[in-house]
Nucleic acid binder design. Sequence first.
DNA 1: AGCGTGTTGGAAAGCGCTTTCCACATCACT
DNA 2: AGTGATGTGGAAAGCGCTTTCCAACACGCT
Lengths: 346, 346
Amino acid sequence: MASRQVTLAEVAKHAGVSLATASRVLNGSTRQVSEELRERVVGTARELGYLPNASAQALARNSSVLVGLVVHDIADPYFSSIAAGVTRIAEDAGLVVVLGTTGRDPRREVELVNTLRAHRARAVVIAGSRTTDRYSSQRLAEEITAFTAQGGRVACVSQAKLGVDTVVPANRSGARALARQLAALGHRKFAVLGGPPDLLVARDRVAGFKAGLADAGLDLPEANIVRSGFTRDGGYAAVSDLVAAKTGATCVFVVNDVMAMGAMAALREHGLRVPEDVSVAGFDDIPTLRDLVPALSTVRLPLEDMGERAAGLVLDDVVAGPRTVRVAGEVVLRASTSSPSGTGLR
Amino acid sequence: MASRQVTLAEVAKHAGVSLATASRVLNGSTRQVSEELRERVVGTARELGYLPNASAQALARNSSVLVGLVVHDIADPYFSSIAAGVTRIAEDAGLVVVLGTTGRDPRREVELVNTLRAHRARAVVIAGSRTTDRYSSQRLAEEITAFTAQGGRVACVSQAKLGVDTVVPANRSGARALARQLAALGHRKFAVLGGPPDLLVARDRVAGFKAGLADAGLDLPEANIVRSGFTRDGGYAAVSDLVAAKTGATCVFVVNDVMAMGAMAALREHGLRVPEDVSVAGFDDIPTLRDLVPALSTVRLPLEDMGERAAGLVLDDVVAGPRTVRVAGEVVLRASTSSPSGTGLR
DNA sequence: AGCGTGTTGGAAAGCGCTTTCCACATCACT
DNA sequence: AGTGATGTGGAAAGCGCTTTCCAACACGCT
């Protein structure tokens, strides 16, 4: 069934040249080949429908054309935006993107890098926050070391924790600036939907927000921070706890947009109006946000751009040590936040 | 810099066995190896940190562990939902997903399948509608033939035009059912944002919608169909034309949700309220829809499921000819559609 | 003529693995 | 003891390509 594939050897034979010459013609070898032979080879290759065997090339060259991309969940707009950036750059460079999804399982992350290593992938971009879990971080670090030792390049989008090139969004300062602007709106009591306690992005954003409130002479009691999953459903679910906590908050900061969307849905179902009863702000500015009503205030991150930057880091030929690209966050106040009017969450 | 990798030969030597034995132990060979040797090999492999070279395996076995996934734009929720389904199934099966994006360029589609063929990918899932463009369809068909001739499997998500296994959503009947329900709501004058004229999904949906209106004794004048790109911005841009056309329509059907989201934003900017001034319905039920206000009426397609089905088609070992999996669409009426109240678009 | 230099083609040695053979033991059964 | 069947290990031949090395030749010089 599987028809025999045309090989370089056949092309060479048909063209009456050696294997070496055929190889030199059909790939960007440095060696020159006379115009006459070159044409003959190219001609027969086209005629026979020759297609190089990528596995054989990868083996012979000890390097492939593969670039790994590791995300938690490709259906999440945050990751799919980053993925769009990464694929654009990689494909423009003639490379092939391998997509791996972890489902937020750190072990799976290690597994994926391992697989990529087995494939002699040229590089890998790991998107998705690190956690405080020492064990899996350790395993991942080892796997990454092995990968780089083998000549592969690695970049992360998140915290600069792994000793590799990293694109770091301004989680702290972005959240801090947001807090200040919300305080300037007149809010005095805040609540935070803070995501999982062990997730570094979430921690950074909460810490930054707290710092921003402190700048305004405000405090964020620990009791006003509700923990939940970093997903839409996490945000949705957290609202029950939030309401039960009777914090009296007039403004809620949610550590990412996807969670914020879930939270807004839940608030609606609780009969609370945004922003009349409570203001809501998120973080990331995922593309889908612009069609939300009320439009969600947030801290804008250039997600697709961040993907491009990460891919760029990993594909250039700079040999310097771990580089860090800092990406600023821009506070965007929209309809979901207003000056406090009601009594807040009580 | 690139440290030498541990090879099977080294493992074999350290374990004091032949290359053949080592290979048999470390891969699912049918051949038996005595418990003693097996343990010795596994032990040294672990000790030395052996990782098989996937390229070499692919070459020797003449088959790889790669599965291609070709989409137009991974940042589009329609595609990222399908992608999530495909990756889930593929990764569960221990395969590796290669993501290719076309940017809606048919030539790029051909290019990607070609690359996948060069990599001896085991299968490829092509998501994204066919067009009426004969030339590029022809080229793609040839490429697919070459791919299958080589033992690869191909499945599409869209129209069953390519002679391969296909997951076909009920575009026609879904749109038809939607039209009937909208007519039952009392609407008499409709407009359609129809997407690109050469795109088959778009054509099918428009045709289905027209048929549904006909069922209700209503006509859809050609002048009430506005053409534009199949993207959010396409939907956004089309609204100007729509308004200028002064169709008097009280209800607008938009051929996909992403376009509908753009259209709703544009309608808002035109000072038109949904659904008071005009009802709007879309198609697909992308996940982000559930947080839209007003919630968009649509025809629900189980997108992630469709991705899983497509991956399933391509990974099972049925040898039967081209199969077609039909997926039903379920009309979901939400807040964006109501009985007509105003004068419509005039 | 003799020599170095540069250019171009080909033979062949890998790259790291799988898999076919073949050899040898062992075992059950005449 | 002799026969086949069965189980297990190893040698070696690929898989399709890249790249080193060498040979051949054409130059431009002295």
